[in-house]
Each structure stands twice: as C-alpha cells, then as structure tokens.
C-alpha cells in the first residue's frame, strides 16, 4: 500500500492529470475550438439549445453509468427506449392521462431491466456476459416494439398539449427537460454517495466476490442496477415523445452507443470510487459539445460517428494507461 502511494505521488505530473481528467480536458478543448471555428457558438441561445439537446442522452447516461459502475454494460437501452415510447403514447392516447402513460413506460422499462438482471443472476454473470445478454435483449425489445405498433408510427393526440408541454415549457429560461435532467442527476448522485444501497453498488462493481463474502447479495444489486437503467430508458422515452409527439420502433435506435461513449469518455470505470454522476455529466457535456460544434460546422452525420468512435478509442487508451500506472483512483 505504501509503495503504491509513493508511486502515485511521483506520477503526479501533466500526463497523470490528463489521464485522470480526460473528460474535463476534452470539454475545455471543445469550448476553445468551438469559439474559434464555429460562428454563434458563444451565444446564450446556443447554450440553451445545447442544454435541451443533451437531455435524452443525459438521462440514458445516468442509467448507463450506474450499470457500468457494477461492471455491467447495457446495450439494450436504445431499443427499450423505443418500446417504452410506443407503449407510453398508446396508453396516453387511450387514457388521456399522463400518469398512466408514465407508469406504463416505467413498467416496460423496468421489466426489460429486470429480465436482463434476472438472466444475469441465473447464470451468475460477470462483466463480459452482460454485453451479450443485453444485446440479445435489445433484439427482443425491438421485436416487442414492432409487434406492439405493427410497424406503424404512433402520433400523440393533438389535444394532449399538457403532455407536449413537458418538453416545450421552460423555468426561468431553462427548458423543463434540462431541469428534469439536473434534478434527476442530483437525486441519483445523492443515492449513490449517501445511501447504503448506493455504496453497495460500488462494492459489487469493485469485486463482486468480496462483496458477496461481506454479506451483500451481489446478484441482487446487479439486478437493481439493470432495473434502474431500464427506468432511465423509460424516462428518456417520456421526454422524447413529449418533444417529438410521435413514436415508432426505430425511435431509440443507436441511442445506447451514445450513452456508452458518454459514460466511458467521462472517465467512469467499474467499481471506481470516483466514478459517478459528475463524470457522467462530463461525458454527456463532452458528447453534446462535439455534436453541437460539428453541426454548426456542417459536418456529415456519418463523419460525426467516426469522430465519436475515435474519441472513445482515445478515452479507452487513457484508461489503459491509467491502469498501467497503478491503482484505479
């Protein structure tokens, strides 16, 4: 332990700082780059716009980070989002009640999360199994969405303006959805840091065997994390349908990859005591800024995907360098 500390102290230099605060540095670089090369970047309107752009990815990333902390990986989020969106709008059109729509979406999301977690519990999965389980589950969720909608586009009833106002309204000039994101972020941060269940998630992620020996039922905590991720997908679905007013089975296509990139670029790592909502926020801001700046510079959407991939690879390299320098913190 002593030796380790000395090594970390010696390594406190520019490289060490860069590797540890990858997301933060990227944000600063992006802001500098954007203010030089993109017109209208440093305007209040643009930042307001940015705040509402990052909401859906932000909510998904919150769930993704929690799953990533317990050494899982939820590739089903995007398609679960589609399923929740379709169900929510159908229920909303049927009952004209926002609460029922929300509850139905949450039930579907939590159900898919529960299925992910339950399968993981049955096969006593470790980190790498959850990639495959959730990949298969995403196909099931996509099929469910197609069966539910019969492949059609569902429109929100035009008289449900109260539902659409969830996304349209604003509080003190900040859009409602951004407020939802911030409140949700603070709540999850509090739960992760200050409650027993949150701390146990970190233990399970760091070493699920040791946590099990210490009296924590690791399997159950992994399951809770997946259920929470499903709930986040449902919440994102509500925000998304409120904004667009329509839903189809391809609504959430590929959203999970953005959430994964944001989680990892922000610097989260399984069981890392410093990973959490702050780093998730860094990652989300980073990805939002990249999209914002590249949209302003008229960069093709496919090139944007390649750029995101390269940034993810650089972030992974930073993580591996960090690991080789000793210690997770």
């Amino acid at each position: 332990m002593q030796k380790n500390n000395v090594m970390i102290k010696k390594r406190f230099d520019v490289g060490w700082f860069a590797v540890n605060n990858f997301g933060l540095i990227l944000i600063v670089l992006m802001v500098v780059f954007g203010s030089i090369f993109a017109n209208n970047f440093l305007t209040i309107d643009n930042f307001r716009n940015l705040a509402s752009q990052i909401v859906i990815n932000g909510i998904l990333t919150i769930g993704f980070s929690v799953v990533y902390i317990i050494d899982g990986f939820d590739l089903s989020q995007g398609n679960v989002l589609s399923a929740c969106a379709c169900v929510a709008l159908t229920i909303l059109n049927g009952t004209h009640n926002i609460l029922w729509a929300f509850l139905a979406a949450a039930a579907i999301g939590i159900f898919f999360g529960f299925a992910n977690g339950m399968i993981g519990k049955v096969i006593k999965s470790d980190g790498s199994d959850s990639y495959l389980i959730t990949l298969a589950m995403s196909l099931v969720a996509l099929g469910f969405a197609y069966i539910w909608t019969k492949g059609l586009n569902i429109q929100c009833d035009s008289e449900m303006t109260s539902y659409r106002n969830i996304a349209r309204g604003n509080i003190l000039g900040i859009s409602n959805t951004a407020v939802i994101l911030v409140v949700f972020l603070v709540i999850v941060h509090f739960v992760l840091r200050k409650t027993a269940i949150g701390r146990k998630l970190y233990y399970v992620g760091a070493n699920k065997k040791a946590a099990f020996m210490g009296g924590i039922n690791s399997h159950n905590y992994r399951m809770y994390a997946f259920m929470f991720s499903g709930f986040c997908a449902a919440l994102a679905a509500i925000v998304m349908t409120a904004r667009t007013g329509s839903a189809n089975p391809m609504t959430g296509n590929n959203y999970e990859t953005d959430a994964a990139i944001a989680t990892i670029v922000g610097g989260n790592a399984p069981g890392d005591s410093k990973s959490g909502m702050l780093r998730a926020l860094f990652g989300v801001l980073c990805l939002g800024l990249i999209r914002n700046i590249m949209n302003m510079m008229n960069v093709d959407a496919n090139i944007q995907t390649v750029v995101k991939c390269i940034i993810l690879l650089v972030a992974l390299y930073a993580l591996s360098v960090k690991k080789s320098w000793g210690g997770k913190d």
Binding site: I119, L132, I133, L135, A136, M137, S138, L139, V140, L142, G143, F144, Y146, I147, K150, G151
Partner: peptide, 12 residues
C-alpha cells in the same frame, strides 16, 4: 416481427 423476438430468445 415475432421472428425478431424468436431470434433474440434463441440467442438468450
């Protein structure tokens, strides 16, 4: 559309 669910279920 049920084929997708079946494919996913087989993989699971």
């Amino acid at each position: 559309d049920a084929q997708k669910v079946i494919q996913g279920a087989i993989l699971l």
